[in-house]
Amino acid sequence: MRHLTTALAATYAGLLYLFIFLPVIVLVLFSFQDGTLPVPPLNGLTLRWYEAIFADGKLMAALGNSLIVAILSSAVACILGFLAAYAFARYTLPASGLLRGLIVAPMTVSTLIIGLGLLSVLNLTGMRLSLLTVGIGHVVINLPLCFAIIYASMGGHQVNIERAARDLGAKDWQVTLLVTAPMLAPSILAAFFLSVTFSWDEFIVAFLLSRFDVTLPVEIWSMLRSGLDPRTNAIGSVVFLVSVAFLIIMELAVFRKTGKSS
């Protein structure tokens, strides 16, 4: 009986893992397809599609744009989120529940609506669509997340730690820089990394708010118009590998640290 359920469980889990990994395996496998169609049969293995994408100036520019937008918008979201979390955790503000609700509100609204709203106001002000406008949109999306993560990690016991620093002569900026920020480093880093991955992958806002300089998802989107193409497989595989590398760094840097100190 016990063996039977274990076998059933293993079979079920195996099938589901197959379902989960199938598209990724196919994507990576056929990025090496020696032919112009990334579908069976597999004619042979080649690296030429990778050569093609790395030689593609537009694609590489989009990749660079994505990195810049992701890192800068996440940094802004983290700084704003950290400051706001600090304000709400350490001080009593009037209507603080309402104000906190305002900051996390964009999280509950679909990115399509955020993008459309920003687009309509930008049209009104005559501001040109660019990477800057994409970045602004990404901060709007990621700020609630950064705020929520950092706010959740600000416990009451840290109040006394900050008091102790002040008591020992630290000025306000010294308390923030030498005590609060390093103490919250794990959650600030987690918020930053998560924010970077979201921004890196975000499509709708980037699509609506950009024009000539586009981010990688938007560039890949336009590649899709030409149908199945091994070049899309290649760039998709690269993006996946970069994300996984990022995940491993995050796992090692952030979660190991918090695991140790708890």
Partner: peptide
Amino acid sequence: PFWTSYVVRSYS
């Protein structure tokens, strides 16, 4: 596979 790009995931 969560971490593949959203657009790429649908494409695959």
